[in-house]
Computed example of a mutant assay.
Amino acid sequence: MRAAGVTEFGGPEALHIVEVPEEHAGPGQVRLRVSAATVNPTDTYLVLGVYADRDPVKNPPWVPGMDVAGVVDEVGEGVEHVVVGDAVMGVVVPSGAHGGYRESLVLPGDSVVHAPKNATDVEAATLPMNALTARFSLDLMGLRPGQVLAVTGAAGAYGGYVVQLAKADGLTVVADASQADEQLVRDLGADVVVRRGDDVAARIRERFPDGVDGLADGAVQDALVLPAVRDGGAVATVRGYRGDGQRDLRVFPTLVRKVAQDRAALDRLRQQAEDGVVTLRVNRALPAEEAAEAHRLLAGGGIRGRLVLTF
Rank of each mutant, 00 (worst) to 15 (best):
A177W: 02
R207D: 00
S178P: 00
G245K: 09
T38L: 01
A134E: 03
M66I: 13
V72H: 06
S111C: 09
H16K: 15
R102W: 11
G65H: 10
L215E: 08
V259C: 06
A4E: 04
G160K: 00
L269W: 02
G85F: 06
V72I: 12
D55T: 08
Q272C: 00
E8H: 11
Q147Y: 04
R284N: 07
D191Y: 05
R281A: 14
R304W: 07
V112H: 09
L280M: 10
I17Y: 08
V106H: 01
S178D: 00
E80A: 15
D169S: 11
A177N: 02
P41H: 07
D181P: 01
T279N: 06
V63D: 11
L249N: 07
V282T: 14
V200K: 01
A97T: 01
A223F: 12
R306N: 15
H295Q: 13
V18T: 07
V84M: 06
L171Y: 10
E19W: 04
L269Y: 04
A288I: 15
Q272P: 01
G302P: 04
L149R: 02
V88Q: 04
G276R: 07
A115E: 03
R144Y: 10
N59D: 12
A154C: 12
R31W: 11
L226W: 10
Q271D: 14
R263Y: 10
L215M: 07
E19Q: 14
L255D: 14
R144C: 04
V163C: 13
M66N: 12
N118P: 02
Y101D: 08
Y158E: 00
D222W: 13
T254Q: 12
R135S: 12
A219M: 13
V151E: 03
V282I: 04
A234S: 15
R144F: 10
N283Q: 08
A219Q: 12
A154T: 02
V277E: 05
V220K: 12
A69N: 02
E123F: 08
R135P: 00
G90I: 08
A155P: 01
L140M: 14
R205P: 01
D217S: 05
A175L: 06
L255G: 05
E19C: 06
E8L: 03
T120D: 03
L266R: 04
Y45C: 03
R135C: 01
P64Q: 05
T44A: 15
